[in-house]
Simulated scan of single mutants.
Amino acid sequence: MENLTSACDGDCDCSPDPALLADFKRAIHALGGKWKLEILFALMNGAVRFGALRRSIGGITQHMLTTQLRELEQDGLVSRTVFAEKPLRVEYELTDAAYGLLPAFKEILSWSRLYGAARLVASHQA
């Protein structure tokens, strides 16, 4: 398996490269939270209005969705567009930076299909 955290040759302490760790922490901070990954995944197919987004993510409260969207917007992953219409229309969509996560999302789905199904089968047999 590829070692991404250090340049360990076997003679060192194998601690993570501080620069790589800082980059990883920044990404985890931007994506961390109970709902952020689900929100980003729900926006992968294009702009969505707030109400439709909330309905697509079961169990999230209006307050939590608003909070998470604001954080994602501050981190440059989601853009918010307000249309001067009556009634007011607000849409959320991914930025180019967030679309860069698409390969990672595909890998997570692949991993889930491979290991999630095996784990589910094992837990039902126990």
Rank of each mutant, 00 (worst) to 15 (best):
residue 27 A to E: 15
residue 27 A to V: 14
residue 29 H to L: 12
residue 29 H to P: 00
residue 30 A to R: 13
residue 31 L to V: 03
residue 31 L to W: 07
residue 31 L to Q: 04
residue 33 G to S: 10
residue 33 G to F: 06
residue 33 G to Q: 09
residue 33 G to C: 08
residue 34 K to H: 11
residue 35 W to C: 08
residue 35 W to E: 08
residue 36 K to W: 05
residue 36 K to A: 12
residue 37 L to W: 00
residue 38 E to K: 14
residue 39 I to P: 01
residue 41 F to V: 14
residue 41 F to P: 00
residue 41 F to N: 15
residue 41 F to A: 15
residue 41 F to M: 15
residue 41 F to L: 13
residue 43 L to N: 07
residue 43 L to M: 06
residue 43 L to E: 08
residue 44 M to E: 07
residue 44 M to C: 00
residue 46 G to L: 10
residue 46 G to W: 05
residue 46 G to E: 11
residue 47 A to T: 05
residue 47 A to S: 15
residue 47 A to K: 12
residue 49 R to C: 02
residue 49 R to L: 01
residue 50 F to H: 09
residue 50 F to Y: 14
residue 50 F to T: 03
residue 51 G to W: 01
residue 51 G to I: 03
residue 52 A to F: 05
residue 52 A to K: 14
residue 54 R to E: 11
residue 54 R to A: 10
residue 55 R to T: 11
residue 55 R to A: 11
residue 55 R to F: 06
residue 56 S to R: 11
residue 56 S to N: 10
residue 57 I to T: 04
residue 57 I to P: 01
residue 58 G to V: 12
residue 58 G to R: 14
residue 59 G to Q: 10
residue 59 G to T: 08
residue 59 G to E: 09
residue 59 G to H: 12
residue 60 I to N: 10
residue 60 I to Y: 08
residue 61 T to Y: 10
residue 61 T to K: 14
residue 62 Q to F: 01
residue 62 Q to M: 05
residue 62 Q to D: 12
residue 62 Q to P: 00
residue 63 H to C: 10
residue 64 M to C: 06
residue 64 M to R: 12
residue 64 M to L: 03
residue 65 L to E: 07
residue 65 L to V: 06
residue 65 L to C: 11
residue 65 L to Y: 09
residue 66 T to H: 14
residue 67 T to R: 13
residue 68 Q to L: 04
residue 69 L to H: 02
residue 69 L to G: 02
residue 69 L to M: 02
residue 70 R to C: 08
residue 70 R to K: 15
residue 70 R to P: 02
residue 71 E to M: 09
residue 72 L to N: 06
residue 72 L to P: 05
residue 73 E to S: 07
residue 73 E to V: 03
residue 73 E to L: 01
residue 74 Q to S: 12
residue 74 Q to W: 03
residue 74 Q to A: 13
residue 74 Q to P: 00
residue 74 Q to M: 09
residue 75 D to K: 05
residue 75 D to E: 13
residue 76 G to I: 00
residue 76 G to V: 01
residue 76 G to T: 00
residue 77 L to R: 02
residue 77 L to T: 08
residue 77 L to E: 03
residue 77 L to K: 02
residue 78 V to H: 02
residue 78 V to A: 03
residue 78 V to G: 04
residue 79 S to A: 10
residue 79 S to E: 15
residue 80 R to Q: 12
residue 81 T to S: 06
residue 81 T to Y: 02
residue 81 T to P: 00
residue 82 V to M: 09
residue 82 V to C: 06
residue 83 F to T: 12
residue 83 F to I: 13
residue 83 F to H: 15
residue 83 F to E: 15
residue 84 A to M: 08
residue 84 A to H: 04
residue 85 E to G: 09
residue 85 E to Q: 13
residue 85 E to K: 13
residue 86 K to I: 01
residue 87 P to F: 02
residue 87 P to S: 05
residue 87 P to M: 04
residue 88 L to C: 08
residue 88 L to Y: 02
residue 89 R to N: 09
residue 89 R to C: 03
